[in-house]
Design a protein around this nucleic acid. Structure first.
Lengths: 116, 116
DNA sequence: TCGGGTACTCACCTCTTGGTAAGTGGTCGG
DNA sequence: CCGACCACTTACCAAGAGGTGAGTACCCGA
């Protein structure tokens, strides 16, 4: 994904949505931003145990490019950057809700483990 | 994915759902089976231009293992195998609908190309 | 008899994804 | 003066996702 292509011809809407959402941490970032509103880089990193800084940035950049998250840079001396969801990102999150319910139900049935 | 792990600890329901749905052709298979009810292997292959036989089988097997699709083998001389969605697969498809709408809307806005 | 269709399996190879670890420049607390 | 924190960037590397092409056992139509 990422560097090249993207926006490639899609079969249907789900296909297009999956393109934007595929990436190990993307939906988790969405979820985190949705629940906390605005978060700084280090806050996100701490909120997603196991994520590498490289992937976090890469995903955030792609999601910014895709118009899902807004990136606000404060030119202060200890650098400060705040990430938040755009309208589009909020809509995506809403559209993901039923899928989340399905997954939760499935976890309950299969007894899958949960992190934190 | 696939051979090892799976059912790994999840952060939330969306995470669990994404695990089951991640794979280049999975949502398309879901979509195809949902729209046609029951399909044979070759019909699916023809319905998803570009899919390789290897991936199609691999995905179908994983989805069967995950309880999303049902596989019915007819012991006839020209081999015949029919695939259909389970209740769980239908529910997943329903849960994916809003995401599909979001993606369709997005395609409209960005003017992304569509296959076939 | 030749080709095509059925539903696969297998071996091999490539490209992408994602992880690790180090470096950057500045500031603040102890 | 040492280390930690901030928000990154860069180079390198391993695993795996997915593609290609061949083979299989059988039958049917031309």
């Amino acid at each position: 994904m990422a560097t090249t292509a993207r926006q490639g011809p899609y079969f249907c809407g789900i296909d297009a949505a999956m393109d934007v959402v595929s990436g190990k941490w993307k939906v988790l970032i969405l979820w985190e931003l949705h629940h906390h509103g605005t978060r700084r880089f280090a806050e996100l990193r701490r909120g997603l145990p196991g994520v590498s800084e490289k992937m976090l940035i890469q995903h955030l950049r792609e999601m910014e490019e895709d118009g899902l998250v807004h990136r606000e840079v404060y030119r202060e001396v200890p650098p400060k950057v705040e990430y938040s969801l755009t309208e589009d990102g909020v809509a995506l999150n809403t559209a993901l809700a039923p899928l989340g319910d399905w997954g939760t139900e499935r976890m309950r049935r299969t007894g899958a483990a949960k992190v934190r």
